[in-house]
Amino acid sequence: MDPVGRTVSVLGFGDPGRAIVHDWAAATPAGRLTWCVVAERADDATLTALAAQVRTARVGWRLMLAGPEVDVLAARAVATGLGLLDAEIRTAVTGADHKRVSCPHCRVITEAEVPVGAEVPCRGCARRLHVYAHVSRRTGAYLGFMADAEEIA
């Protein structure tokens, strides 16, 4: 990220995110930090609050996101969907165990602790999904496709 923002907002998730948020906030010149929040998760309320920040921001603003990948991806998707550029977002990912996995067969998203290359049952259609190294920036979800489609009778 281009560090030269006139104003900066910082959003962190969970305890790992909290530590980074504190470091970032301390390093931000006085008067530039306009919003600094640590949330448990990128839940609807947090993402709604973030969207309100983006909608009222003026060019020159930077957004900094820290925490587990699943939350950072969700927050980044909201921000870029409202017109923020990659160059205006700084991210620090503290872990990637937890994922949102998108099922292309039934379109339901399953949340689970699962590594890339492993399988997870879809909570929509119950198919076993192979988690693929393919991530949508629009939805912040990994692609999962039916693991045993070629084995079934």
Partner: peptide, 14 residues
Amino acid sequence: TSTETYPDWGRDRR
């Protein structure tokens, strides 16, 4: 042969 319909056509590969 989209990813969406893979459950319908995947087995034919075998």
